[in-house]
């Protein structure tokens, strides 16, 4: 259908092609082709990203108690469970990278786990994140639950921090002065 335009171009098309020549741009078909490919690639990339970021509009992760309500439902399935570390539960075999710990529900912006909350047993092999033991951290475990052993096998650990920044002094005025460095400012 386009080739007909070439053999018998309407007035506006030929005027357009002439304006083309003065603009020092040749091969407009390749320009148009590149533009179509460009738009196509971007549309596909955006579609994929939206798909990846909002999987079926489900939540980004489930809480420990949501998970514990029916762990069997999640048997073998890869998922994310968020909560706080129970610091008493942490065990590591000497000289090994494998660790065992328990995760419980966490209230946003309140350090530590909710007192008396149920906990989920988890295992992990590897280097722990810097902020893993910080009570402010919300720990997100990526992995799968094994119903047989009752342990959540963690592949990956993410750390979510509160949307709040403050200095050590403001957080805990009783803290040893100067412990966090001399750049605390004189204000």
């Amino acid at each position: 259908m386009q080739s007909e335009n070439y053999t018998n171009p309407p007035a506006e098309v030929s005027a357009y092609l002439e304006s083309e020549a003065t603009e020092e741009r040749s091969g407009w078909r390749s320009h148009r082709m590149r533009l179509i490919i460009l738009v196509g690639v971007i549309a596909l990339a955006v579609a994929y990203m939206v798909y990846a970021a909002f999987p079926g509009n489900t939540q980004y992760f489930v809480s420990v108690s949501e998970f514990l309500d029916d762990p069997r439902l999640h048997d073998g399935q890869t998922l994310r469970v968020a909560g706080a570390l129970d610091p008493e539960s942490f065990r590591r075999e000497d000289g090994s990278a494998s660790s065992r710990f328990a995760l419980g529900d966490k209230e946003p912006d309140v350090p530590g786990l909710i007192p008396g909350t149920r906990v989920m047993e988890a295992s992990y092999v590897g280097v722990l994140p810097d902020l893993f033991f910080n009570p402010h951290s919300e720990i997100i475990l990526e992995g799968s639950y094994d119903a047989q052993s009752g342990v959540f096998a963690t592949d990956n650990i993410l750390v979510k921090c509160p949307s709040k920044y403050q200095s050590l002094q403001a957080e805990n005025p009783d803290a040893v002065p100067g412990a966090a460095g001399a750049t605390q400012g004189g204000y």
Binding site: L131, N134, H136, S137, C161, P162, Y165, Q166, S167, L168, Q169, A170, E171, N172, A180, G181, T183, Q184, G185, Y187
Partner: peptide, 18 residues
């Protein structure tokens, strides 16, 4: 940023990227 801002209690110096 480097001399006056206090160090963040949780994140440490890296929070200065903020």
């Amino acid at each position: 940023i480097f001399m006056v801002a206090p160090t963040d209690a949780v994140l440490g110096h890296v929070q200065r990227i903020f």
